[in-house]
Design a protein around this nucleic acid. Structure first.
Length: 279
DNA sequence: CACGTCACCTGCGTGC
DNA sequence: TGCACGCAGGTGACGT
């Protein structure tokens, strides 16, 4: 489910309070429970529980779609993949068994609150490491980082002859875009999802970067998007222009929005506003 | 290099 | 009602 804005929303709520409980900053971990061992990418369950205990939460960051929780002696890195979510529970029981269906991992704190990772589809992963670059080292630039200049973004696009949609979703190219925000950004930039990246002019690249930042910032401002049965608490879904709007009129020109499959992902676009470049 | 396919999982909506 | 099917916010390993 979560793309950059959803992960950013969760990060802020964990730091400020609001994911069902108070801020987890400065909490000391007294116990860990792993209900679905494959959630743990590394290390193994025994080492994880042993190492995470007695550590304190120093701060929380986001890199791409990863949550990076800095402990005083190591880093806890979490990727929510398709259906992961994190909540805080106050005054928990012993937590020897899951509190809710699909709870996969729980960290218990000294004040009897807990941070719980819930993940219906079991795709999410958690790492405890000394060296976060082992996990984050190959990621592309953060789209919201202002040091990424339009000229540089254009040069990045020029280097590949790839379709825009899968390229923007490639975390090695640019880090944080997912299916929703990519469709919305391409619509805003009036670019067809299959346009080859190397064909973009400097001006088109600048407009695309600006559209990406615009949709990501609005997503963050709206606390992410909440669709399907998975509750997020955001309302960016009310601002979708094309995502899952196939069959409905384009809000700009009235042409019926189409859906196609690109790189195995549902892709939504306006065939009139977003023309595939011919040459 | 760039694209397609499959695998990993569960649950929901649709249509027969 | 039951049941098959397609779909879902992600990613990585392969094959061509």
């Amino acid at each position: 489910m979560p793309e950059l804005p959803e992960v950013e929303t969760i990060k802020r709520a964990l730091a400020l309070g609001g994911r069902g409980g108070a801020s987890i900053l400065n909490r000391r971990i007294t116990a860990a429970h792993i209900y679905w061992p494959r959630t743990l990418a590394s290390p193994d369950v025994v080492s994880f529980i042993d190492n995470v205990k007695e550590q304190q939460i120093v701060n929380i960051q986001r890199r791409a779609k990863f949550l990076v929780i800095n402990l005083d002696h190591s880093k806890l890195i979490i990727h929510l993949r398709m259906s992961g979510d994190i909540r805080v529970a106050e005054q928990v029981p012993d937590l020897g068994s899951p509190l809710l269906p699909h709870d996969r991992l729980a960290l218990v704190f000294e004040n009897n609150s807990a941070m719980i990772f819930n993940d219906t589809r079991k795709f999410g992963r958690v790492w405890l490491t000394q060296d976060p670059l082992e996990i984050l080292g190959e990621l592309g630039p953060e789209p919201l980082d202002e040091s990424l200049r339009p000229e540089q973004f254009w040069e990045m696009l020029q280097k590949f002859q790839r379709q825009l949609k899968p390229l923007l979703m490639d975390q090695h190219f640019l880090a944080g875009m997912g299916n929703i925000y990519t469709d919305e950004a391409l619509f805003k930039a009036k670019l067809h999802p299959l346009t080859l990246s190397s064909r973009l002019s400097l001006n088109q690249a600048a407009l695309l970067l600006s559209a990406i930042r615009s949709v990501l910032n609005e997503g963050i401002r709206r606390n992410g998007a909440s669709i399907d049965w998975v509750y997020r608490g955001g309302d960016f879904q009310n601002a979708f222009n094309v995502y899952q709007k196939d069959g409905e009129p384009c809000p700009v020109c009235g042409t019926i929005i189409q859906r196609m499959v690109v790189g195995q992902r549902g892709t939504h676009f306006c065939p009139n506003c977003q023309r595939e470049s011919i040459n």
